[in-house]
């Protein structure tokens, strides 16, 4: 049995890495607001950020396709000002997958922030550190498991993304054809051997990612959350 074309794996991995890195670097401020702000508008925005969790991927993909189409004002603006076309391109896949993957990262980060005892922040302030220093020296180091959970779930989810990717990217080999689409196409062509190989590799990678996450979280749970009284 010939080894399957590695192209879809490369596109999938590249996509998953881009999306995970972008969301890990940009979602912390939102997670912080969702966890700590008591403003009235926060639940509305938080719902918006979580919407892609329940929205059928094809619906999200459909709206993104319309939104970024070269005939839409946004699509025309991006094309004319930045020379950027998002429909049926790899950058389009990244943008769409970031939108689809947002709730996975934001929820993990928000839960990580909520799990940090308030006293640790207060201790940092009374020891002379400002808010940004406290985030850098206390909050981020103590939410490593949450950051890892967000990264792993976002990575795994993006790796298996199908509906959104198909709608906005189509299936251009080497550009937008990801593993899940390759599995679909192989199955449709009744080439089950190749579909098995693609699916099997995806299964192993996903299992390994979740296993790694659980191992790290178990190790972290052995440590006390705040050095509190025993």
């Amino acid at each position: 049995m010939p080894f399957p074309d590695p192209g879809p794996f490369v596109v999938s991995l590249e996509l998953a890495v881009w999306v995970t890195v972008i969301l890990a670097l940009t979602m912390f401020p939102f997670a912080w607001i969702f966890a700590r702000s008591k403003r009235r508008w926060v639940p509305w925005v938080e719902t918006l950020f979580s919407l892609s969790l329940v929205l059928p991927p094809t619906v999200l993909g459909f709206y993104l396709l319309i939104f970024f189409s070269p005939f839409s004002p946004v699509g025309q603006f991006l094309q004319n000002v930045f020379g950027l076309r998002l429909v049926f391109t790899f950058p389009g896949l990244v943008v769409a997958s970031c939108i689809a993957g947002t709730p996975f990262m934001v929820t993990a980060l928000r839960n990580g922030i909520l799990a940090i005892p308030e006293h640790l922040l207060e201790a940092s302030w009374t020891l002379g550190k400002g808010r940004l220093e406290t985030i850098g020296w206390v909050v981020l180091p103590n939410m490593r498991p949450a950051i890892l959970a967000g990264a792993v779930t976002t990575f795994a989810h993006t790796l298996g993304e199908f509906g959104v990717v198909l709608m906005i990217g189509g299936s251009i080999p080497g550009v937008t054809k990801v593993v899940s689409i390759a599995i679909f196409e192989r199955t449709e062509a009744q080439d089950y051997a190749q579909a098995h190989l693609y699916a099997g590799i995806l299964l192993v990678v996903s299992y390994a990612a979740v296993f790694l996450l659980n191992r790290v979280q178990r190790a972290e749970r052995r440590r006390e959350p705040s050095g509190a009284a025993r």
Partner: peptide, 13 residues
């Protein structure tokens, strides 16, 4: 000012 908390609030990391 410095405050010693009832639960110590030591940084676990």
């Amino acid at each position: 000012v410095a405050l010693v908390f009832q639960d110590y609030a030591l940084f676990p990391h």
